[in-house]
């Protein structure tokens, strides 16, 4: 069996899967306006989830500041286009570069911490960014926020944004998968499992982790850019700590260590919470669903599926060997 582009996509199964899924699903989604709208928002969340996947699943940095990085990206886009009249797409570069630079600087300080301490440090960082945004009235519109952010060039329909969002996801997955197949990706995997070993291999651990975190922040910034242009309004509540936490949850639920895990988690969890009765008890169902999923699939949905697949293939196999770029995040002592 062969298909065009196999030479490039053959060794990139995740990219192939997501590209095919998007190509098949998008035409269906675009037939219903409400699905189209949801597809854009879910695209933003899925990008944020992917950014958590890169940072936590690969570089081992448990991050709770992705919402803040997205906010920086979003505000950069909003300010550059509304105040300074930047052309579309030019602001995307800034929206990705700014959070990446910040993440790189911060990561150099926090990489030696344990995951939970890192989580706290990034949470504090996110809160500081949120407070700065709220108080920079002249630049960010303060608590009220910025309205009237223009659309991205010719793209001004929800369908256009849905294509843009999922196109960005396919590209991100492609780059992500390439990264993981490179020497850097292999090094990241080594250091996540065993830092001493990584050092012994001559890996500059802090630099590599920081680079991983910076890439993750850049993806989050791109998500913020998309959000700002699509919703056209941005306030401090738009991309706040709650978004950071839910991005983390969705990544873990889907399987943070798997490239497509965060996307699966986002689609599944959002779908699930939408089916449940809302209002006052919304949080109850949300929490209960989270606990049940964690009990049922503690390495994420994809981890559960991979485990089942392994068992089907070799019924007697004990816990499977960990494939380099597919291994889920296991415990760090």
């Amino acid at each position: 069996m062969s298909f065009p582009g196999q030479r490039y996509l053959g060794p990139r199964p995740n990219t192939l899967i997501i590209a095919v899924c998007v190509l098949v699903a998008l035409p269906v989604v675009l037939t219903r306006p409400v699905w189209t709208d949801s597809a854009v928002v879910l695209g933003v969340y899925a990008l944020l989830g992917l950014s958590v996947g890169i940072s936590y699943g690969q570089a081992g940095i448990l991050t709770m500041s992705q919402g803040a990085f997205a906010a920086i990206g979003g505000y950069a886009a909003a300010i550059l286009t509304t105040r300074f009249g930047w052309p579309p797409y030019a602001d995307l570069l800034v929206a990705m570069a700014l959070p990446a630079a910040l993440a790189y600087g911060v990561a150099r300080l926090v990489t030696r911490l344990s995951p939970l301490a890192t989580a706290l440090a990034t949470l504090a960082l996110g809160s500081v960014i949120e407070i700065l945004i709220r108080n920079a009235d002249a630049l960010t519109g303060g608590y009220i926020g910025l309205a009237g952010i223009p659309s991205v060039g010719a793209i001004n329909t929800p369908a256009g944004y849905a294509c843009l969002a999922w196109g960005m996801i396919v590209v991100t997955v492609f780059l992500y998968e390439n990264l993981m197949c490179s020497a850097y990706g292999r090094a990241l995997n080594v250091l996540r499992v065993d830092q001493a070993r990584a050092r012994a291999d001559g890996i500059d651990v802090p630099a590599l982790m920081s680079a991983g975190f910076a890439v993750s922040a850049a993806v989050a910034g791109a998500a913020g850019w998309l959000y700002a242009h699509y919703i056209s309004f941005l306030s401090p509540e738009s991309l706040d700590t709650h978004i950071s936490i839910s991005a983390l949850l969705m990544a873990v639920i889907g399987g943070a260590g798997y490239i497509l895990g965060p996307i699966v988690g986002t689609l599944l969890f959002d779908g699930l919470t939408r089916l449940m009765p809302a209002a006052e008890l919304q949080g109850f169902f949300y929490g209960a669903a989270l606990i049940i999923i964690l009990l049922a699939a503690r390495t994420g949905i994809l981890g559960l599926l991979a485990g089942l697949a392994r068992r089907l293939r070799r019924p007697d196999a004990t816990p499977a060997p960990r494939a380099a770029n597919l291994s889920p995040q296991e415990s760090l002592p």
């Binding site: 219903r32 709208d37 809302a278």
Partner: peptide, 19 residues
């Protein structure tokens, strides 16, 4: 529909009830 006190959810909910 519940907007969960969140602007993103509010935008989604409005789109949902109209569409």
């Amino acid at each position: 529909v519940d907007d969960k006190s969140n602007p993103t959810e509010a935008a989604r909910a409005v789109s949902q009830v109209i569409n």
